[in-house]
């Protein structure tokens, strides 16, 4: 166990790296969200405000600190290998946008 310590800020604060419009477009594409130029511009300044706030955290010296993924230090419980689920495709597909022959349909995928 690493002894308790108050956060120490690194002597030299990292310079806040502003996002660019290209970053916004790249990320919007990765996240599959259509975004036009006006929206991209508007969101860019908001995102930069947020990342300016986030930069405070980046300045903290965290050498030797384990990343914390979960609130509690517990481990994965394992399920017995048994089939417990019955066919419910009719109910599930009743809310689907486009189904034919029990298949979900999407615009043609080209491999």
């Amino acid at each position: 166990m690493i002894p308790y310590a108050a956060p120490i800020f690194k002597a030299s604060l990292p310079v806040f790296m502003a996002l660019t419009l290209d970053d916004v477009r790249r990320v919007a594409h990765l996240a599959r969200v259509a975004i036009d130029d006006a929206e991209a511009r508007a969101v860019l300044s908001q995102l930069n405000d947020v990342f300016r706030l986030v930069a405070e955290m980046q300045a903290v010296d965290t050498a030797g600190v384990e990343p914390m993924s979960h609130a509690l230090d517990v481990t994965q419980r394992l399920r017995a290998d048994a089939v417990t689920e019955a066919d419910q495709h009719a109910a599930f597909q009743s809310v689907a946008p486009h189904v034919e022959g029990d298949l979900y349909l999407v615009p043609k995928v080209i491999e």
Binding site: Q76, L78, R79, E85, D87, Q88, H89, F92, D102, Y104
Partner: peptide
């Protein structure tokens, strides 16, 4: 088709995974 795709497999909102031993 899709008769062995349960709520978790089709990723309904709110469902969660539990690993198979």
């Amino acid at each position: 088709p899709n008769t062995q795709a349960c709520a978790v497999d089709i990723a309904l909102p709110g469902v969660l995974p539990v690993a198979n031993k």
